[in-house]
C-alpha cells in the first residue's frame, strides 16, 4: 500500500502554468498584491462611523414636553442632544422660533427655556408648568426625569412626569402603549 500511495502522489505535480502564474503574481507590481493602505482603511472606517453616527444622531429616542401656556416638545437623541423641537400651540411656536434649542444638551435646553423672560412671566403670574419625559426605556426615563428635576429645582410650581412610549397623554401627542413608568414631583417633594 505504501508503494501504491507513493507512486500515486508522485504522479501529482504542480503544473507549469500554475507555477508561471504564481511567479507572475509574486513579481507583479506591488499594487496587485499590496494590502490596502492602512490610511485608506482608516478613512473608510471613519466615513462608515460618521455615516452610522450621523444616522444615529438624528434619531430621537426620547422626548421632553413642556407646557405652561406655551407648549412644546423637545426630541432627544441617544446622546442626550435635542434633535428636534415641535411646537404644540401658537405660544410654543413663538418660543421655538425665537429660541435656539437645537443641538444643545437637553438639560441646557430646559435651562434656556426656563430662563426665557416670556416663561418667567408665566411663573410670575403663578401658572403651573408641566414637564414630562417620554421614552421606551424605563431606566433612561428615570435618569432623564432626575436631570429634568435638577433643572427645575428653583423654579415655580413645576410638575414632572415620565412615561414610556413615543407620545404622551398630554397635548404633545397620544399616549402610547407599553410599560409605563410614572414619577411625579412638585417643587419641594416627589412621588413615583
Amino acid at each position: 500500500m505504501r508503494n501504491r500511495i507513493q507512486s500515486a502522489f508522485a504522479g501529482v505535480h504542480a503544473e507549469a502554468a500554475l507555477k508561471e502564474r504564481t511567479i507572475e503574481m509574486i513579481y507583479a507590481p506591488a499594487k496587485r498584491r499590496r494590502r490596502a493602505d492602512p490610511l485608506i482603511w482608516a478613512v473608510a472606517c471613519l466615513v462608515l462611523l460618521l455615516g452610522l453616527g450621523s444616522g444615529l444622531f438624528f434619531i430621537p429616542v426620547s422626548a421632553i414636553g413642556i407646557e405652561i401656556n406655551p407648549a412644546l416638545r423637545l426630541k432627544i437623541n441617544c446622546f442626550d442632544i435635542v434633535v428636534g423641537v415641535e411646537a404644540i400651540n401658537k405660544d410654543g411656536k413663538r418660543i421655538i422660533e425665537e429660541t435656539d434649542l437645537m443641538f444643545s444638551e437637553y438639560s441646557k435646553a430646559i435651562d434656556t427655556l426656563l430662563a426665557d423672560p416670556r416663561m418667567q412671566e408665566y411663573f410670575a403670574q403663578g401658572k403651573d408648568m408641566e414637564i414630562y419625559v417620554e421614552c421606551d426605556d424605563e431606566q433612561r426615563c428615570k435618569q432623564m426625569l432626575k436631570r429634568v428635576e435638577g433643572c427645575v429645582g428653583n423654579e415655580g410650581n413645576v410638575a414632572c412626569h415620565a412615561g414610556s412610549g413615543t407620545g404622551h397623554g398630554h397635548s404633545a401627542g397620544k399616549q402610547s402603549g407599553g410599560q409605563h413608568c410614572k414619577h411625579h414631583r412638585h417643587r419641594g417633594g416627589s412621588e413615583g
Binding site: V12, H13, A14, E15, K19, T22
Partner: peptide, 14 residues
C-alpha cells in the same frame, strides 16, 4: 519554487 511546488500542490489536492 521548484523544490516545494509539487509538495504544496499535493497538499492542496488532498
Amino acid at each position: 519554487m521548484d523544490r516545494y511546488a509539487d509538495m504544496v500542490r499535493r497538499l492542496c489536492l488532498i
